[in-house]
């Protein structure tokens, strides 16, 4: 079994108060890993049912929004008799700091996993300042 302490169930996305989704389909919050490396930040999201064509990533001002549309693959002439998970879209938004180089963001989707590489802007990279001994 996977780690017991982690929440394994899909979580339905909560929209800000007063704001609703126009379609009635379910929307889930994908689980993510965010790893900061020396010169980039990597965001990995579990979005089963999506591929490179069905994921939309938008960056407006500082807000990075991920939306994955899922077309449910329902077996023909079959009825659902037992259900432990819901099927729906994915939606999650993050506020980025200014240090991301917006032009070089890369996104890939493989086996239902979205991987976003957010390179750090030149200015934000930590610079080592050499300390010289005074003559």
């Amino acid at each position: 079994m996977a780690t017991a302490t982690q929440e394994l169930q899909k979580k339905e996305a909560t929209s800000p108060e007063g704001v609703e989704y126009t379609s009635s389909r379910k929307v889930f919050t994908p689980a993510v890993d965010i790893i900061e490396q020396k010169d980039r930040t990597i965001l990995i999201a579990d979005m089963p049912g999506t591929d490179e064509k069905s994921v939309d990533i938008t960056l407006e001002k500082n807000v990075l929004t991920i939306y994955g549309k899922v077309e449910p693959l329902v077996p023909e002439k079959h009825g659902l008799v037992f259900s432990e998970y819901g099927i729906g879209d994915y939606h999650r938004a993050f506020t980025l700091s200014n240090e991301v180089d917006r032009n070089r963001i890369e996104a890939t989707v493989k086996n239902g996993i979205l991987k976003l590489v957010l390179p750090k802007a030149e200015a934000a990279k930590a610079r080592k300042i050499a300390v010289r001994a005074e003559a």
Binding site: L8, V74, V81, F82, Y85
Partner: peptide, 22 residues
């Protein structure tokens, strides 16, 4: 239990689906 499954029933088939990305 993990993974969560959905089970679909047909005439003489059953389809089990599970989301296990990656």
């Amino acid at each position: 239990e993990f993974p969560a499954v959905n089970v679909w029933k047909g005439e003489d088939h059953a389809v089990v689906t599970a989301e296990i990305p990656g």
